[in-house]
Simulated scan of single mutants.
Amino acid sequence: MDKQNGEAVLHVEGDWTVKTVGSLEREIRRARFEATPQRVDVSALGAVDTAGAFLIHTMLEDGGIEADKTYQLIGEHAQAKALLELVSGRERQEKVVASQPLSIIDLLARVGKGSVHFMDEAVGTLSFIGEAMLTTFKLLLQPHKIRWTSVFAVMEEAGLDALPIVSFLSFFVGMVIAFIGATMLQQTLGATVFTVELVGWAVMREFGVVLTGILLAGRTNSSFTAQIGSMKMRQEIDAMRTLGIDPIEALVTPRILAMLIMTPLLAFGATLSGLLGGLMISWVALDISPILFITRIQEIVIIQNFWVGMSKAPVFALVVAMIACRQGLLVQGDVQSLGKATTASVVHAIFLIIVVDAIFAMMYMELGI
């Protein structure tokens, strides 16, 4: 550091990057400023990144430059000015935010912003559902226009490949239901044989199809959103529109049809696996033979419970496909938006599956089904 025209000038030389800031910081701590630096000479500055710029900014602040003042640079450098303004502006913003505690106005503003965002999201989702369903209905009236290759590929990827994990999880959930039911019934009624009815009702009406929907929301939703979002980032969807190809017809409809076909089959497999898990626990731990288990299922747990559960599967399929495709089409041109869309897709799908299941439960209760 030296003086020019009565002002102290700080000279920075060499590379100021994350690899060199450690040694530079030690040298700065040993240095003594004879005067407060007012300007920075970057003529001999080599490579610089945000770590080096932050070190220069900190050194100037310690020397007396305030964070809200603009740096006076001497010499030319491609990145020095922008990086110094970046680190100084971010620190100034953090200080302002930290110095202003949240008030009731800020809370109301956040609530209002969240409410407006929720309404916009709801309107956008309903609009997309209407457009996708209309396109799908038109294609069903003209089956030769449906891209059956894409439909069967999605059926294999989202349906057949998901069958092992869906069945495996449902099997253990059926075991858990049998364990809990046996313990509860033994303590309250002293009759563990009613565990069969509990497993049958719970798995057929709720757990089989709900577990299928939640697993598809986590597995298939993220996959669909990532696939379509990647195409959006690479501008492939814009190219499709330029060629006169409707993205809804080419990307959304095959996924809707595939999920409508495979979700009931997956729910059926999950139901069988859950009953098998309950049968295993009843046989091994409760001394209820498989023949007695199956007989009580047939005689007491009426088939209507099975159809109640299966009636939810197509709705869950539409929820998974619609949410995943819409979030994928909302992806912008950066990777960060792809991550946000994938997360939002999974969260929205799981939330809607639980809400739809609750609506079905209340509706069937009112109808006495």
Rank of each mutant, 00 (worst) to 15 (best):
I65A: 09
I65D: 03
E66C: 09
A67Q: 14
A67E: 11
A67N: 15
A67R: 15
D68T: 13
D68Q: 13
D68G: 07
D68L: 09
D68S: 12
K69G: 08
K69E: 11
K69H: 15
T70F: 04
Y71H: 06
Y71K: 04
Y71G: 01
Y71L: 11
Q72Y: 13
Q72C: 11
Q72T: 10
L73A: 02
L73F: 08
L73G: 03
H77N: 08
H77C: 01
H77W: 03
H77T: 05
H77E: 06
A78F: 00
A78M: 03
A78V: 05
A80Q: 01
A80H: 01
K81A: 06
K81Q: 10
K81H: 08
K81W: 01
K81C: 02
A82K: 10
A82W: 02
L83R: 00
L83D: 00
L84T: 04
E85R: 06
L86W: 02
V87N: 00
S88G: 07
S88A: 14
G89W: 10
G89V: 07
R90G: 01
R90Q: 08
E91Q: 12
E91W: 02
E91H: 11
R92T: 13
R92H: 14
Q93P: 04
Q93K: 15
Q93S: 10
Q93V: 13
E94M: 15
E94G: 06
K95G: 05
V96I: 13
V96G: 04
V97T: 14
V97H: 05
A98M: 12
A98K: 11
S99T: 04
Q100H: 13
Q100G: 05
L102M: 13
I104P: 06
I104W: 15
I104S: 07
I105D: 00
I105T: 09
I105V: 11
I105N: 07
D106T: 01
D106F: 04
L107A: 05
L107H: 01
L107E: 05
L107Y: 09
L107T: 03
L108Y: 03
L108R: 06
L108D: 06
R110K: 15
R110Q: 12
R110I: 12
G112Y: 03
G112I: 05
G112H: 06
G114W: 09
G114Q: 10
S115T: 14
V116Q: 12
V116T: 10
V116K: 07
H117I: 07
H117A: 12
H117G: 12
F118D: 02
M119V: 14
D120C: 03
D120A: 02
E121Y: 08
E121N: 11
E121D: 11
E121C: 01
V123K: 14
V123M: 13
V123H: 15
T125S: 14
T125L: 15
L126A: 13
L126S: 09
S127F: 14
S127L: 09
F128R: 02
F128H: 06
I129F: 10
G130L: 00
G130M: 07
G130C: 01
G130F: 05
E131L: 08
E131Y: 00
E131N: 00
A132C: 01
A132D: 00
M133F: 14
M133Y: 10
L134R: 15
L134N: 09
L134M: 14
L134V: 11
L134P: 03
T136A: 09
T136L: 13
F137R: 09
K138C: 08
K138A: 09
K138S: 12
K138F: 15
